[in-house]
Measured scan of single mutants.
Amino acid sequence: NQASVVANQLIPINTALTLVMMRSEVVTPVGIPAKDIPRLVSMQVNRAVPLGTTLMPDMVKGYA
């Protein structure tokens, strides 16, 4: 199973992502692939993302 990107903490709306905010985990449904973590750094979330939430492409500005 492919690992997805999961929030390692509460990420407030419009926050630029950093490595410490994200972890990889095998979850259902599948979200953004963990291999894309380096690409996500500095991108902003367009909503508040609670701890443990799988990041989906529509949550990150400029990803999709």
Rank of each mutant, 00 (worst) to 15 (best):
Asn1Cys: 15
Asn1Asp: 15
Asn1Met: 15
Asn1Gln: 15
Asn1Ile: 15
Gln2Asn: 13
Gln2Val: 14
Gln2Cys: 15
Gln2Ala: 11
Gln2Gly: 14
Gln2Trp: 12
Ala3Arg: 03
Ala3Met: 13
Ala3Lys: 04
Ala3Asp: 15
Ala3Gln: 10
Ala3Val: 05
Ala3Ser: 11
Ser4His: 01
Ser4Pro: 00
Ser4Asn: 00
Val5Glu: 00
Val5Asp: 01
Val5Lys: 00
Val5Gln: 01
Val5Arg: 02
Val5His: 00
Val6Arg: 04
Val6Met: 04
Ala7Trp: 01
Ala7Thr: 13
Ala7Asp: 00
Ala7Ile: 06
Ala7Tyr: 01
Ala7Arg: 01
Asn8Trp: 05
Asn8His: 15
Gln9Asn: 05
Gln9His: 05
Gln9Cys: 09
Gln9Gly: 05
Leu10Phe: 11
Leu10Ser: 11
Leu10Thr: 12
Leu10Ala: 13
Ile11Gly: 01
Ile11Leu: 13
Pro12Arg: 09
Pro12Phe: 06
Pro12Gly: 13
Pro12Tyr: 09
Pro12Asn: 10
Pro12Ile: 04
Ile13Leu: 08
Ile13Asp: 13
Ile13Glu: 14
Ile13His: 09
Asn14Val: 03
Asn14Glu: 11
Asn14Gln: 08
Asn14Arg: 05
Thr15Pro: 02
Thr15Asn: 05
Thr15Glu: 07
Thr15Ile: 08
Thr15Ala: 08
Thr15His: 08
Thr15Ser: 07
Thr15Phe: 11
Ala16Lys: 06
Ala16Trp: 09
Ala16Gln: 10
Leu17Ile: 11
Leu17Gln: 00
Leu17Met: 11
Thr18Val: 05
Thr18Trp: 03
Thr18Ser: 08
Thr18Asp: 04
Thr18Lys: 06
Thr18Phe: 09
Thr18Glu: 06
Leu19Ile: 10
Leu19Val: 12
Leu19Cys: 14
Leu19Phe: 05
Leu19Asp: 14
Leu19Tyr: 08
Val20Phe: 08
Val20Ser: 13
Met21Phe: 05
Met21Pro: 02
Met21Tyr: 05
Met21Ala: 09
Met21Asn: 08
Met21Asp: 05
Met21Gly: 03
Met22Val: 06
Met22Ser: 00
Met22Ile: 10
Met22Asp: 02
Met22Cys: 04
Met22Trp: 01
Arg23Val: 13
Arg23Glu: 07
Arg23Ser: 09
Arg23Pro: 02
Arg23Met: 08
Ser24Trp: 05
Ser24Glu: 14
Ser24Pro: 09
Glu25Ala: 08
Glu25Met: 04
Glu25Cys: 13
Glu25His: 05
Glu25Lys: 03
Glu25Gln: 07
Val26Gln: 09
Val26Cys: 14
Val26Leu: 12
Val26Tyr: 07
Val26Ser: 11
Val27Ala: 06
Val27Pro: 02
Val27Lys: 06
Val27Asn: 04
Val27Trp: 03
Thr28Ala: 06
Thr28Leu: 04
Thr28Trp: 04
Thr28Pro: 02
Thr28His: 05
Thr28Asn: 13
Thr28Asp: 15
Pro29Trp: 04
Pro29Ala: 06
Val30Ser: 12
Val30Met: 09
Val30Ala: 11
Val30Thr: 12
Val30Trp: 06
Val30Gly: 11
Gly31Ser: 02
Gly31Glu: 00
Gly31Cys: 03
Gly31His: 01
Gly31Gln: 02
Ile32Val: 06
Ile32Asn: 00
Ile32His: 00
Ile32Phe: 03
Ile32Met: 03
Ile32Arg: 00
Pro33Arg: 04
Pro33Ser: 09
Pro33Ile: 09
Pro33Tyr: 11
Pro33Met: 12
Ala34Asn: 06
Ala34Phe: 07
Ala34Pro: 15
Ala34Leu: 03
Ala34Gln: 04
Ala34Met: 12
Lys35Cys: 15
Lys35His: 15
Lys35Trp: 14
Lys35Val: 14
Asp36His: 06
Asp36Lys: 03
Asp36Gln: 04
Asp36Ser: 05
Ile37Ala: 07
Ile37His: 03
Ile37Val: 12
Ile37Pro: 00
Ile37Trp: 03
Pro38Leu: 06
Arg39Pro: 03
Arg39Phe: 06
Arg39Ser: 12
Arg39His: 15
Arg39Ala: 11
Leu40Tyr: 03
Leu40Phe: 02
Leu40Lys: 00
Leu40Asn: 00
Val41Glu: 10
Val41Pro: 03
Val41Trp: 03
Val41Ala: 04
Val41Cys: 12
Ser42His: 11
Ser42Ile: 03
Ser42Met: 06
Met43Thr: 05
Met43Pro: 00
Met43Cys: 05
Met43Asp: 04
Gln44Gly: 05
Gln44Val: 11
Gln44Arg: 06
Gln44Asp: 04
Gln44Pro: 11
Gln44Tyr: 09
Val45Thr: 14
Val45Gly: 01
Val45Pro: 03
Val45Phe: 00
Asn46Val: 09
Asn46Lys: 09
Asn46Trp: 07
Asn46Gly: 12
Asn46Phe: 10
Asn46Thr: 14
Arg47His: 15
Arg47Met: 12
Arg47Asn: 12
Arg47Ser: 10
Arg47Ala: 14
Ala48Met: 11
Ala48Leu: 11
Ala48Val: 12
Ala48Ser: 14
Ala48Glu: 10
Val49Trp: 02
Val49Ala: 07
Val49His: 00
Val49Tyr: 02
Pro50Tyr: 09
Pro50Trp: 06
Pro50Gln: 14
Pro50Cys: 13
Leu51Asp: 14
Leu51Arg: 07
Leu51Met: 14
Leu51Pro: 15
Leu51His: 12
Leu51Val: 13
Leu51Thr: 14
Gly52Met: 09
Gly52Asn: 11
Thr53Lys: 07
Thr53Ala: 14
Thr53Pro: 01
Thr53Asp: 13
Thr53Glu: 10
Thr54Asn: 02
Thr54His: 02
Thr54Ala: 06
Thr54Gly: 03
Thr54Lys: 04
Leu55Met: 12
Leu55Gly: 02
Leu55Trp: 00
Leu55Ala: 00
Leu55Thr: 00
Leu55Glu: 01
Met56Lys: 07
Met56Ser: 11
Met56Ala: 06
Met56Glu: 06
Met56His: 10
Met56Gly: 04
Met56Asn: 08
Pro57Asp: 10
Pro57Met: 05
Pro57Asn: 11
Pro57Lys: 08
Asp58Ala: 07
Asp58Asn: 09
Asp58Arg: 04
Asp58Gly: 08
Asp58Glu: 12
Met59His: 13
Met59Gly: 03
Met59Trp: 10
Val60Tyr: 00
Val60Lys: 00
Lys61Glu: 09
Lys61Gly: 11
Lys61Asn: 15
Lys61Arg: 11
Gly62Pro: 05
Gly62Met: 13
Gly62Ser: 13
Gly62Asp: 13
Gly62Glu: 11
Tyr63His: 10
Tyr63Gly: 04
Tyr63Met: 05
Tyr63Ala: 03
Tyr63Val: 04
Tyr63Trp: 12
Tyr63Thr: 04
Ala64His: 11
Ala64Ile: 14
Ala64Thr: 14
Ala64Phe: 04
Ala64Leu: 14
Ala64Cys: 15
